[in-house]
Design a protein around this nucleic acid. Structure first.
Length: 532
RNA sequence: GCGCUGGUAGCUCAGUUGGAUAGAGUAUCUGGCUACGAACCAGAGGGUCGGGGGUUCGAAUCCUCCCCAGCGCGCCA
């Protein structure tokens, strides 16, 4: 109908003429024109059967690598090492992980970049606090055991204790100028914080490792160069002692131009500077074709400035694709963003503990015969999966309110539903005995028809995720697939069917469903156990 | 003031380039377990898609003006 508009034709008339020229005898049972000009093509069952068979025989479910293959840098997770990871870090980490998995699956080269916040003013405060505790190493290591408390203690002193703020600022300068003592203290702190991140990543089952770290501090030596190069390009304006880049397209209050400050009046650099350095590095060293930033929507203006500056300065090609895959803020139940300073946030580890506990209770209730170790294992996969899915299944851009119960639900559109559909198939095969894996698929029932149609749409969904960075479209698809399977399962007897050919065909369809579910869940970083 | 998001069923949310009677989950109600696994299935009710105007054969979707909410807007990250 879009074509009809361009041709200025009546859509129904165009549809009629298109249908006259269609030759789909081998594919469609029936072609009809409906409504304002839709062409409905009723795919015939034998064609669908053939497609399903070839998908089943295909090495990766009919998915062919995207061409040309790209080098894609994905910037995600990036927690601030000064504090413990909280629920607000979930989105970037999990969505980025899904994108990394999906793009790799589609044949791209993915370079993960975990741009952790390990640099900047707040570390001065932490180091000063560490230093004063250093004489008592036991107390120090104990306090570091709980980063949240440690941070608060340092913050309190920074705000209230006379002279402490000056000491803290001095530590920042010493750290950034390479003072060995400061550096050692800093390393000690960062190590504690990173091992905490490692543990969270491990529990979440995300692929990030230390190899993917490219912390802010790594760009430190390049920051002066960035400013010098911007200056050489004639882009620096000095304002109240600070070095700024002004661009026409960025306006602030009262229509004045909004600066990107790249160097403070005291000589220090800012995160705009390191982000510009990172953009340049990703082009020149990592050779990225595409760079995806899974970063809070509130950084929108900042990143737009960074991309524009890097391009204008010639640090990266004008045509290079920098995409801010913004996501919304997780709000508290008062509808306001979690205020980390007041401690209103939920620790990620606490959320995961609760998820596993609730899942364990449910698994134990459903499977009292299983031994505890198995129940623990399954409840880990189910509980963590539920948390991840709850986040992944929402549209990326909108804000949402954190709620324990929706986050930890195991019914309806949740990952346990998908895992359950998968487990049901596995259970069929566990009971089926010998299975003919080369059996013909023959589709006859409406439920079979619908299931096959949905299975065949997998690749188009992955393309959408690849382009838009929207894991929720994959979630929606998998939910639909699982739902179609549940309907098929209720409507079409499989093991109980007398007819050998029908039984084999339905088992083949089930296999295809399980493979697609398992693969899809795998791309979401969620496991699909055989029992649950 | 300018800019970016968003406002869809009681609640939580989908809705891909403008298309058919706006869909799920949840909650409520009705059915279905001597199980190919009830974490499920079948069905019912529930909507002025924030409001007005416009473009179009056709708008939740595009344009415009309002209202509401969250966020961003000079030396934190």
């Amino acid at each position: 109908m879009g074509a009809a508009k361009k041709l200025k034709m009546n859509p129904r008339e165009l549809a009629t003429r298109v249908v006259e020229h269609l030759d789909l005898e081998s594919i469609a049972d029936n072609i009809e024109i409906a409504g304002p000009g839709f062409i409905n093509i009723h795919l015939n069952d034998s064609w669908l059967s053939l497609q399903a068979e070839s998908t089943l025989n295909h090495a990766s479910l009919g998915i062919n690598p995207t061409k040309p293959s790209q080098t894609v840098v994905i910037d995600y997770s990036a927690p601030n090492l000064a504090k413990e990871m909280h629920v607000g870090h979930l989105r970037s980490t999990i969505i980025g992980d899904t994108m990394a998995r999906t793009l790799r699956y589609l044949g791209h080269t993915v370079i993960a970049q975990n741009h952790v916040g390990d640099w900047g003013t707040q570390f001065g405060m932490l180091l000063a606090h560490m230093k004063s505790l250093q004489s008592d190493s036991e107390a120090l290591s104990m306090q570091l055991g709980d980063l949240e408390t440690f941070y608060r203690a340092a913050k309190t002193r920074f705000d209230k204790e006379e002279g402490f703020a000056d000491v803290a600022r001095d530590y920042v300068v010493r750290l950034q100028s390479g003072d060995q003592e400061c550096y050692d203290l800093w390393q000690q702190f960062v190590e504690v914080s990173l091992s905490h991140c490692d543990a969270v990543y491990e529990r979440l089952g995300v692929l990030l490792t230390r190899d993917d770290l490219m912390p802010e501090s790594a760009y430190n030596d390049d920051l002066a160069n960035v400013v010098a190069d911007l200056d050489a390009a004639g882009m620096i304006t000095e304002n109240d002692g600070a070095k700024c880049v002004f661009m026409e397209e960025f306006k602030g209050r009262d229509d004045t131009l909004l600066p990107a400050i790249v160097q403070k009046s005291d000589g220090g650099f800012l995160y705009a500077t390191s982000d510009i350095a990172a953009a340049r590095y990703r082009h020149s060293q990592l050779k990225a074709d595409r760079v995806l930033y899974f970063v809070d929507a509130r950084q929108g203006t900042h990143l737009a400035q960074v991309f524009a500056i890097a391009k204008k300065a010639g640090f990266v090609p004008e045509t290079m694709s920098f995409e801010h895959m913004a996501f919304g803020t997780m709000m508290g139940k008062d509808g306001k963003p979690f205020a980390t300073r007041t401690g209103g946030t939920v620790k990620l580890t606490d959320l995961l503990d609760e998820a596993e506990q609730r899942a364990f209770n449910l698994v134990s209730e459903k499977n009292p015969d299983l031994d505890e170790a198995s129940r623990r294992k399954i409840s880990g996969l189910v509980g963590i999966g539920a948390v991840k899915y709850a986040d992944l299944s929402k549209s990326r851009t909108s804000d949402y309110i954190f709620n324990w119960d929706t986050m930890l639900s195991f019914e309806g559109n949740t990952s346990p539903y998908l895992q359950y559909a998968h487990a049901r198939v596995r259970s069929l095969f566990a009971k089926a005995g010998e299975v003919d894996t080369s059996a013909k698929i023959s589709i006859a029932e409406p439920a079979e028809h619908q299931l096959a149609l949905t299975i065949l749409r997998f690749s188009e969904v992955l393309e959408l995720v690849e382009k838009d960075g929207t894991p929720n479209s994959l979630c929606n698809y998998l939910f639909e697939l699982a739902g179609n399977f549940m309907t098929f399962y209720e409507a079409c007897p499989i093991l109980k069917t007398e007819d050998k050919a029908i039984r084999s065909s339905r088992l083949q369809l089930s296999q295809l469903t399980a493979d697609t579910l398992k693969t899809g869940l795998g791309l979401l970083g969620i496991a699909a156990p055989d029992r649950m």
